[in-house]
């Protein structure tokens, strides 16, 4: 029984580490542009590094038909955009101050971050 309990606790520790503590690698947005794919329940890439104090645009391509993925919200910027299916959509963003800006779908199941440095 002790073994089972230890396995259970290890599982919980794993959940905490994998979903909360782990810092995923960041993709840098550079001159050549970047397409964020919206498919199978995630944004790919989801952690994007962008330079501070200069306007930029993000390009999204949604191939996920689920209505959940349709809206893209960036609450800090009061931005919400509908992403058309199977079509890329460019979203222009203003120059941002340093910081982290999350973006997500309406239900927050799809999540990503803009890391402005």
């Amino acid at each position: 029984m002790i073994g089972v309990n230890l396995v259970g606790l290890a599982l919980i520790a794993l959940i905490v580490w994998w979903f909360w503590l782990y810092r995923p690698p960041q993709t840098t947005l550079d001159e050549s542009g970047l397409v964020i794919r919206v498919e199978n329940g995630i944004y790919q890439p989801s952690h994007i590094k962008v330079p501070a104090n200069q306007p930029f645009s993000l390009q999204f391509l949604r191939t996920d038909a689920s209505p959940c993925s349709e809206m893209l919200l960036i609450p800090d910027l009061q931005l919400s955009e509908a992403l058309p299916l199977n079509k890329s959509k460019s979203i222009k963003l203003p120059a941002l101050a340093k910081g982290t800006y999350v973006f997500h779908c309406q239900m927050q199941m799809y999540r990503g971050q803009l890391v402005v440095e």
Binding site: W18, P24, E39, N40, G41, I42, M109, Y110, R111
Partner: peptide, 19 residues
């Protein structure tokens, strides 16, 4: 299938959702 694919993709991405 869509639930399982979605779950696996988001797991790889260190996120979890309804799938």
């Amino acid at each position: 299938r869509h639930f399982f694919v979605g779950a696996w993709q988001s797991f790889k991405n260190h996120s979890a959702n309804m799938d």
